[in-house]
Design a protein around this nucleic acid. Structure first.
Lengths: 299, 299
DNA sequence: ATACATTTTATACCGATAGTCCAAAAATAG
DNA sequence: CTATTTTTGGACTATCGGTATAAAATGTAT
């Protein structure tokens, strides 16, 4: 990593910890890092990208710590597992990420969302594997089930302890609590049906990017078109279909037509359908704008 | 509710659903509601307040639906409970609130945070009570424990199904899954120790407001002062102590001194302490700014 | 109907923000 | 030393949330 890049990241990290991510402006970072604006944008295209870089390094740190913990220990040692899990929460606390990391789907930035999702999946997978380490291959069918449940109890427990100001409780205690409960589930559960089958984790992420989005929308539009015979609505839908196929869809036109379409649909008592379409198209437009506004690095 | 107010809320709600909360600007709302800016600020002091009003109405709706569901049914009927829980998730889906409601601590706005916390507690309490309805007074000790765990599995399960694009699964299925797991815990768990005792729910919220914050900070500062003999650091701490007591603390001064203090502490290998203090003071200043910038309604 | 009070509108304004652009200075590499 | 890359500093745009205000519209009591 470049020296300047590190300098920026350190400054940003410090401010994120002290002030919090959202209230830290790029201006703040520049001041703290004693750096010009151009330099910042030389390394990151946005504050979000900077955050992702920091999170990456934090995750790297977590990974290393966890590896160190298990280095000369047995894989099926529960106390080791607890400590390993604790690494994440301790780190989150240290970096003031509690809010950020565990409220994954909040961001409106598609890239950040994807980033969070990726790391969420990795964490789930890690937990699932470790649970198999701990409780044997018999539970591997239910590994993902259990991982999701455990993570759920963990997060909720952490949040609750914070909310209830139970500062006396250490994060480790919460983990022990969660694991205790999970063990009870695990013991009984062997015969039960699997809800989250393991292949979900690796199911090739149906690419949900801009292009694919378009296809989904088009299908939805065609669907809707075939069920409605009203001329006006039909025309609107037809226009949307065509405009979305354009290389440079005129967003302002789409926006306007969408508005009218929704009104028409509402008259026909199909408000819900209108909302659904609008929602999809809006998301598409947001994405399109992002992809075409800045010349982003492809990584 | 006023007619105009409803008009605004409807417009806002529609946009929040379609575009999402964060990307919807107040300007958008004005356009959608065909209303002047002044009118908006006549009813709400901010976008956040508007959101809270909407969420309040949604919560009201949820409450009613749940009451209807249990009206002529038995309280210990599991299927009724499942449907009741489902009301929330269905509603969240309908209003595109998934992300918002379940990522509670994200906001930087203190009021919104408090609002979210309040409703989170209410939901926890409701679940805890319903669990007692279902499984008898014997579990009432563990009711909060179980409520937290259940909510954790629920949220995590919902998020995972969405992430894995398991659209075939209905929200009800996820609830059944979560409840299934919880039942196993509940059955065994009777003898186990209680982690979240019920009184946490009603523990008079130690007021964490601006004034109280100050006290905490002052204690921390005194603490630190007594452990450090370095003259410079001592002076800085002394200044902070005095300035924070002022009616109108000069934030820019505090900011500057904080900066220097942190540097000094870093030299003495007490970076962590520096961060902690800075964090506290920053939060205090944020809060102070909010409380003193606008003349807010006291409600 | 008239006079008064309240609400609404339209618009200008403020400060802060993210992000772009560019020419000149500085650092670095060959 | 020269050529290239990086960095700087500032100007610039557009948008945002929010304030302020005068004038117009609306409602209300007599």
């Amino acid at each position: 990593m470049n020296q300047k890049e590190k300098q920026i990241m350190d400054a940003a990290q410090k401010l994120f910890i002290i002030k919090g991510f959202r209230v830290t402006s790029i201006q703040d970072i520049l001041r703290e890092a004693k750096i010009a604006k151009g330099t910042f944008y030389n390394y990151f295209n946005s504050k979000n990208e900077c955050l992702m870089a920091i999170l990456d390094s934090v995750n790297e740190e977590i990974k290393n710590e966890r590896m160190k913990l298990v280095f000369h220990e047995e894989l099926d040692d529960e106390t080791v597992f607890i400590k390993q899990v604790d690494v994440r929460f301790k780190m989150d606390k240290k970096h003031n990420l509690m809010a950020l990391f565990h409220s994954i789907p909040i961001s409106d930035d598609e890239d950040l969302k994807k980033f969070m999702e990726k790391h969420y999946k990795l964490e789930l997978e890690w937990i699932a594997n470790r649970l198999v380490d701990l409780y044997g291959a018999e539970i591997s069918n239910h590994a993902l089930d259990h991982a999701i449940s455990l993570l759920g109890i963990l997060q909720q427990g952490m949040y609750a302890t914070k909310l209830f100001k139970m500062e006396m409780k250490k994060t480790e205690d919460v983990i022990k609590f969660a694991l205790q409960r999970m063990k009870q589930v695990i013991q009984i559960n062997q015969s039960d049906t699997v809800f989250f089958t393991n292949d979900y984790l690796h199911a090739s992420n149906k690419p949900k990017d801009c292009e694919n989005y378009k296809e989904v929308i088009i299908i939805q539009l065609r669907d809707l078109m075939s069920t409605v015979q009203n001329k006006k609505i039909h025309d609107y839908l037809q226009f949307l279909l065509e405009e979305l196929q354009e290389k440079k869809p005129r967003l302002y036109l789409i926006e306007s037509v969408l508005e009218s379409l929704q009104k028409e649909l509402k008259i026909k008592d199909m408000e819900f359908e209108g909302q659904k379409i609008s929602q999809l198209v809006w998301r598409f437009m947001e994405r399109w704008k992002n992809e075409n506004s800045s010349t982003k690095a492809f990584n």
